[in-house]
């Protein structure tokens, strides 16, 4: 019987930041690229995000944060995912973050960071190429 595998992505807004223009635009683009996008809404704690990722069995967790709290929040999400056995999930991040934070985030398990000016196509392709 034919399988019908579709890439599932959780788009999440960790922390208190309410700017969701980017998250919604990306969610829309991923949907238009044929993916199933689960959106959590605003103000998610790392625990909520990890829980949603687990229940929804997603291939990708895309985190968006513009408040500068990324260094505190992104690694926490990565750690929780790992703890629940989801270390094969692709974690990516986006928002306003200085270049010098990126190596730190990579080291903590965020596969890549996309800052303002990144094209939607670039993100879609990145996901398609990197989902295991």
């Amino acid at each position: 019987m034919a399988t019908t595998k579709v890439i599932r992505v959780l788009v999440a807004k960790p922390g208190l930041d309410g700017h969701d223009r980017g998250a919604k635009v990306i969610a829309h683009a991923l949907r238009d690229a044929g993916m199933e996008v689960i959106y959590t809404g605003l103000r998610q704690s790392p625990e909520q995000i990890a829980q949603a990722a687990l229940q929804e069995d997603v291939d990708v967790v895309a985190l968006s944060c513009l408040s500068g709290a990324h260094n505190a929040l992104f690694p926490k999400v990565a750690q929780l995912l790992k703890e629940q056995g989801m270390d094969d999930v692709l974690i990516i991040g986006g928002g306003i973050m200085p270049d010098e934070d990126i190596p730190f985030l990579r080291e903590k398990g965020i596969a890549d960071i996309f800052t303002p000016g990144t094209s939607l196509k670039q993100i879609v392709n990145y996901i398609k190429e990197n989902v295991k």
């Binding site: 922390g15 505190a72 929040l73």
Partner: peptide
């Protein structure tokens, strides 16, 4: 900062990482 804007004290769990940021 965001915790203030959303009515959380700086030691609230949801404030973690956001204190004094924006």
């Amino acid at each position: 900062d965001l915790p203030t804007q959303i009515g959380y004290d700086s030691d609230a769990p949801m404030a973690s990482g956001e204190v004094g940021k924006v």
